[in-house]
């Protein structure tokens, strides 16, 4: 099976999984006792968060492999994962905010997890800005990998410091522990299916973006070759 067909198959599977997840989230899963229908957003929020964090981990690890081995495919993977990661991380912040408004009574609060996620989002927006500002090719790839690694080393300290900062400050709101207890087995099943569906969306986007970046790199290579041939023929 060619790569293109595999991506198409993944796309079709993703579509099926997403339809199933939507059905389970809105129809199959029972409404939560205290929060009501608002709680359903968590079936997307939690998988989105997991995928966003995984995406940033992929960026860092692929960047490390790129610096080590130098194969462009590692950089293409790192770049594609960062792009998808920023999209998913933005959705995590948006869905969290939508949920927080009715439940906490505010769109935003400097809770430790919110703050850490927001800083993570800023770091990877920075990564994308860096990549956009540098020319395509080897230099952008190397700088991106370096920044991705520094960011990955920084993330644990961000999480620890933000947690210390919030626990020592007076708590504005109750912690979210216990606010999304999944009492019903149907809720757990829904979350799992949604987890797989959102991960599939990510995998599919990643495959598409890596393929595009590979095609772009090949095109640049061919253009350079063509230019060299033209120059050589002019000289003769």
């Amino acid at each position: 099976m060619s790569k293109g067909n595999a991506t198409k198959l993944l796309g079709a599977a993703t579509l099926g999984l997403m339809v199933a997840a939507l059905f389970m989230v809105f129809v199959y899963a029972p409404a939560e006792a205290t929060q009501g229908d608002v709680q359903r957003i968590f079936y997307f929020h939690v998988p989105l968060a997991w995928v966003a964090f995984a995406a940033f981990a992929i960026t860092a690890v692929a960047g490390l492999f790129y610096l080590w081995l130098g194969y462009p495919v590692f950089d293409q993977l790192a770049y594609a994962a960062a792009e998808a990661g920023v999209v998913f991380c933005t959705l995590v912040l948006v869905t969290g905010s939508l949920w927080a408004r009715p439940i906490w009574g505010t769109w935003w609060t400097w809770d430790s997890r919110l703050t850490s996620t927001f800083i993570l989002w800023l770091l990877y927006v920075g990564y994308l800005a860096l990549r956009a500002a540098l020319a395509d090719g080897e230099q952008g790839a190397r700088m991106g990998a370096v920044f991705g690694l520094v960011a990955a080393a920084d993330v644990p300290v961000v999480v620890v410091s933000v947690r210390l900062w919030r626990t020592i400050h007076p708590a504005v709101l109750v912690t979210r522990e216990g606010s999304h207890g999944l009492a019903d087995a149907r809720m757990v099943a829904t979350l799992l299916v949604s987890m797989v569906a959102v991960t599939a969306v990510f995998g599919w986007l990643l495959a598409l973006r890596v393929a595009t970046l590979r095609a772009e790199a090949r095109l640049r290579g061919l253009a350079a070759e063509l230019l060299a041939l033209e120059r050589a023929s002019e000289e003769n």
Binding site: I119, L123, V125, G126, A129, F147, V150, D154, V162
Partner: peptide, 9 residues
């Protein structure tokens, strides 16, 4: 943009 988020902790 790159330095300040890294410096947050």
């Amino acid at each position: 943009l790159l330095a300040v988020p890294l410096y947050v902790p």
